[in-house]
């Protein structure tokens, strides 16, 4: 029975627009979610249902209008600088667009080295660590000197994943990680993610509109519908009306 490491409690997010006549649009309402260490939680829902927003809130990239996010029991909004930095490193995000995550003007190597510098690894270890990383995500050394626009979608997504893994996070929020990829590349990516989870005990919050992907990857799943998360027992589809 693994411990709960991330806990979203009663999250609500609403957008207000207009100066005089205010219009309030509620995306999330009283949403709660629990993620245990080393497990995959699949979050499904149609586009526009707010699942990406929920993912960002849980990763600390956006603030909700209400509710709390707890990391190992402590609210991330009450953390001091050092604790929040630690949280940031432990909860990472992989985005949908493979080419977008990496700076188009930097070679893959530079992007990797920036992160290694950030975590304070001494320069003499950079080469070794980068090599280990490439092996883990199934890339060869020759891509290091290339820039994102010279690589395929699959390669870019792997490089982005590799960069995230350099931080050795506890949880990775996977926001539609394979929807922009070809079928065979998607298959490769999903298997790789599963293997990595087995080796590194990383937890995944998998956000996807594709039920098949969630069924393949997730241990537990929930459906985000009208701003609330409805748990799917045993990954049954019956409760989730929007999914085909």
């Amino acid at each position: 029975m693994s411990a709960v490491c991330l806990n979203a409690r009663s999250i609500s997010k609403a957008y207000e627009s207009g100066l005089i006549f205010k219009r309030r649009r509620s995306i999330l309402e009283d949403v709660s979610l629990e993620l245990k260490s080393g497990e995959t939680f699949g979050l499904v829902g149609d586009s526009g249902s707010g699942k990406s927003t929920l993912g960002r809130i849980i990763a600390g990239l956006e603030r909700p209008t209400g509710g709390d996010v707890l990391f190992h029991g402590k609210s991330i909004y009450e953390m001091n600088g050092a604790e929040f930095s630690k949280f940031r490193r432990s909860v990472q995000t992989l985005f949908q667009d493979p080419e977008g995550s990496l700076n188009p003007r930097k070679s893959i190597e530079r992007s990797m080295h920036d992160v290694l510098r950030l975590i304070g690894l001494p320069m003499r270890d950079w080469r070794r660590r980068t090599s280990e990383m490439l092996q883990m995500v199934g890339l060869t050394e020759e891509i290091l000197c290339r820039r994102p626009d010279q690589l395929s979608g699959g390669q870019n997504q792997r490089a982005a994943l590799g960069r995230v893994l350099l931080l050795e996070p506890e949880v990775i929020v996977l926001d539609e990680p394979t929807s922009a990829l070809d079928i065979s590349v998607q298959a490769q990516m999903l298997h790789m993610l599963k293997d990595l989870q087995r080796d590194l005990s990383t937890g995944y919050l998998l956000i996807s509109h594709d039920m098949d992907v969630v069924k393949f990857m997730a241990d537990r799943a929930g459906c985000l519908e009208q701003g609330r998360v409805i748990p799917l027992d045993g990954k049954s589809i019956a409760l989730c009306s929007e999914i085909r």
């Binding site: 079928i183 998607q186 298959a187 490769q188 999903l190 298997h191 992907v213």
Partner: peptide, 16 residues
């Protein structure tokens, strides 16, 4: 290619 489909278990094709 057909084996990479979800129905057949997302079996990957090695290489690129």
């Amino acid at each position: 290619l057909l084996n990479s489909l979800p129905e057949r278990g997302f079996q990957p094709i090695p290489g690129q």
